[in-house]
Design a protein around this nucleic acid. Structure first.
Lengths: 210, 210
DNA sequence: CTATAAATGTCGGAG
DNA sequence: CTCCGACGTTTATAG
């Protein structure tokens, strides 16, 4: 197998699994690692089949050349359309839950709005704290340096708006990496670790008002 | 199929491809997308097989439960050990090439050292410019905001060292995204787009001296 | 289509 | 083992 595209790669002769899907995509698997093929071509792409040689090419000019010495097994099946995967627990859902229960983020917090628009992208949650101050909240499943940088850019921008300034920052995630925590604290951003399962059980804030 | 782990996911009954590898890993594929399985369990993990139900678990307590209604085809093959994949063109190689030809980065540039160590990680290339000033270079295949932030942290740190200060910054990549370019320029960091293939053909700097 | 952020990212290397 | 950054990241989504 040879790949010539974003990089150049060569795979020596060996027994492998070739998978060709209905969308024309091709992948080559070894007998380990569930997720990642040794090599692949993502759709949209085209397979040119010659005796013993497959050429898989895409529009960008990337090419996968597969030389087949011997076929040990060949099998083809019609799978039909796939019903979608239903997921739960991703960032969007975490954001929803926090929007419904902002007090988890801090004493007396109330929601101004979700996805508060700015010139450099939407702030996940914009809140008002117990003292009437504005707080920008960045929500992540896993809190890493990237997220702190992202929030820092929002804070810099929002802090220039006289209607909002001064704007505090909260970095909320199910898990916060040590480096991210250090960077956040260095920038005066408070870190909140959120327990996703506990949050699902939390009574909504509006109900606790009565 | 049900997955209970880092998130919860459910996949309705349909015809799919199940792949079980020698390392015990399991993946479930639909008839599209070469790269990513619909669901999977990465090694190390264990498969518990009961009639019509597979339970795949790992040490972290994540679980994949697969209910099998009907087997349309079943085939098993011994693949043996896989000889490795040979790659070329990644960031490490780009860094090597630039280290060998620093003048590509700027007029009169010479290399001080590669992977210059700092408290927050190594700087890809530390160079001296034509005027004897110090320049930190961040090398990326694709230049995005992350890389600019990374270089900014290095510059902030190196700039405090009286032996080096003032330290200039160069962001070198095969491709630089507009947002990254804007951020870099805003911070006084110069952007250099590098042609990888051309660079491989460039005569090494030491040879051009004679 | 481009640009940007999320991902059960995965993977590999250093400490 | 954890932390950290690269990856042919891939993938989805918004503009």
């Amino acid at each position: 197998m040879d790949y010539i595209g974003r990089l150049t790669a060569h795979l020596p002769l060996a027994i492998r699994l070739l998978m060709v899907k209905a969308d024309g995509s091709v992948s080559i698997h070894a007998d380990d690692r569930a997720y990642k093929p040794l090599n692949w071509m993502s759709p949209p792409c085209r397979v040119e089949e010659a005796p013993g040689v497959w050429r898989v090419v895409n529009k960008a000019g990337e090419e996968l050349r597969i030389t087949i010495e011997e076929v040990l097994h060949d099998s083809s099946h019609e799978l039909g359309v796939d019903p979608g995967l239903i997921k739960d627990g991703v960032e969007a859902h975490l954001q929803e839950l926090l929007a419904a229960a902002p007090s988890v983020l801090g004493e007396g917090f109330t929601l101004i709005r979700r996805e508060y628009p700015t010139a450099i992208g939407p702030v996940d949650l914009l809140c008002r704290d117990g003292d009437g101050g504005t707080v920008a909240v960045e929500v992540k499943r896993r809190g890493e340096i990237d997220g702190v940088e992202q929030l820092t850019r929002y804070l810099e921008l929002l802090g220039r708006d006289p209607l909002l300034a001064p704007v505090g920052g909260v970095f909320a995630a199910q898990e916060i990496k040590p480096q991210a925590r250090v960077l956040a604290q260095d920038r005066g951003i408070r870190c909140v670790v959120v327990d996703y399962n506990a949050l699902r059980g939390v009574t909504r804030d509006e109900l606790t008002l009565f």
